[in-house]
Design a protein around this nucleic acid. Structure first.
Length: 206
DNA sequence: GCGACAG
DNA sequence: ATCTTGTCGC
């Protein structure tokens, strides 16, 4: 895992997320990877994949559950992203390698962790409910990520280094793709796409 | 030993 | 993670 910028020009942005059923004995996970024009944020490609028989959800082991399917979705993508925003933590993980970093290393593509809640650590310092406000996510004396207020009255986002991207660059990309919403566009579209992959797979199976 | 716990 | 109408607030 590389925690500094090792990234070329970003023309295509990627978004990655998975969708699954709350109670599912087959442990099927559906994943989607979307591609957007980095300049306009217009969607330019999408791919999905499903896989059963993987791990159940275990905090700390999310990557082992989602990365295999996400990697398959990536392989199906006609346009390969230069940078991928992943739903979940990157370095802000007990072992320092969350799903975002895990995916980045497996694909060897720059990634950013965009999580909606904390796995480990705590937000430090003042953190008023004003869009644009940041506060460090600290764990065992080290800054492992940044809490980001993206919308008033909404829970913050937790951005962390995934792979080959510094925290500063990660924050810049997240803020640049918000479009006034709580979640950045790549992750938001990936979430919707993953849900559609799941619904389509379920409809096909009956 | 107890509590916390991405999605 | 998912289910799901109305409702509160900017």
């Amino acid at each position: 895992m590389v925690t500094v910028d090792a990234i070329g020009p970003v023309r295509v942005l990627g978004g990655a997320d998975a969708s699954s059923l709350r109670f599912d004995a087959t442990r099927t996970v559906h994943a989607a990877m979307v591609a957007l024009d980095a300049a306009t944020l217009a969607p330019i490609g999408s791919a999905g994949a499903s896989r059963s028989g993987g791990l159940p959800y275990i905090p700390g082991l999310l990557g082992f559950r989602e990365v295999p399917v996400l990697a398959r979705a990536f392989a199906q993508l006609p346009v390969k992203p230069d940078l991928i925003l992943v739903d979940g933590h990157g370095m802000a993980h007990p072992k320092g390698l969350g799903v975002a970093s895990h995916l980045g290393v497996v694909l060897d593509v720059p990634t950013i962790g965009v999580a909606k809640s904390v796995l480990c650590g705590a937000v430090e310092g003042d953190f008023p409910d004003t869009p644009g406000t940041r506060a460090p996510l600290v764990w065992k004396g080290a800054v492992i990520g940044m809490a980001l207020r993206t919308r008033r009255g909404a829970n913050p986002l937790y951005v962390s280094v995934g792979h080959r991207v510094s925290l500063g660059t990660a924050l810049a990309w997240v803020e640049r793709t918000l479009r006034g919403r709580r979640l950045p566009e790549p992750t938001r579209l990936a979430h919707e796409a993953a849900a559609r992959v799941r619904l389509a797979a379920m409809a096909a199976a009956g």
